[in-house]
Amino acid sequence: MTVSADQALDLYRVMATIRVFETTAGSLFAAGELPGFIHLSSGQEAVAAGVCSVLRRDDALTTTHRGHGHCIAKGGKVFGMLAELYGRAAGYGKGRSGSMHIADSSAGILGANAIVGGGLPMALGAAWSAQVRGEDRVAVAFFGDGAVAEGVFHETLNLAALWRLPLVLVCENNRVAEMTPSSVHLATTRVADFAGPYAIPGATVDGNDVLVVRDAAATAVARARAGEGPTLLECETHRIRGHFEGDPLRYRSAEETAAWAARDPLVLFRARLAELGVPSARVEAVDTEVAAEVRDAAAAAAAAAPAPVSSLLDDVRPGVS
């Protein structure tokens, strides 16, 4: 799949936005500005950007507790997300649910999810709904290698394959489930191997190369949109930060950190942009714009009104329309 300079720069902008968002959120959390838990996806930006670059706005997406990047890449608004992290009424969930619960119906973001594997059946349902309604929407479920050990992963694969649903299952394999390495929690080293028993295509790709991810996702999405069924796409990547902010990362060696730093998806893609003939000034301009966008959004979120106590009961039970 060819990529123009503008398309490449768009991909870079998404990845840079995610990185700055995550770095900003991490700093704010460390400074005690953000309550609760926060899980950052720094290092995995190429998966979010690559996959979402081939999706339409009306395609559906479910993601995980580590889902900021997917939401941004799918069209989620940085301000609404930061406001949610701050617990502000202007946040996506009216500031009541936090980092792990970003949803945006206007962007097809069915929701991040605090339950490992919890979004997989929902994405399956969105794909089923498209099939029943005769629409060419597809659904994408993002999940980590940890979710592969959940029963719903296998149930979802079985049913998606059985019903030939327009579903793309994207595993971000960062080789560690929370704090436990794959060797301890998975019977296989290649998650894509699980496509075999369900007779659907499976692929393992370099999840730190956004163009590789984009190509693989384009194939899977085209297949889904054409009514040919689901694909299991495994993207090998690396989580720079710990499982949660505050995780001392005792299970991570300095060698591993250094090796992956050289394969940082933003570093790799900046080099690629140069190869594609994108002037460095344009890249730097994107960096400047993204930094300003996130900084301004964070400032606005910080200044926004906290979720009021009067909102405790809002949206609990919708009733009959």
Partner: peptide, 10 residues
């Protein structure tokens, strides 16, 4: 889901 999405979804 209604609550978590701030009413975005039902």
């Amino acid at each position: 889901v209604g609550y978590m999405s701030g009413g975005h979804y039902r």
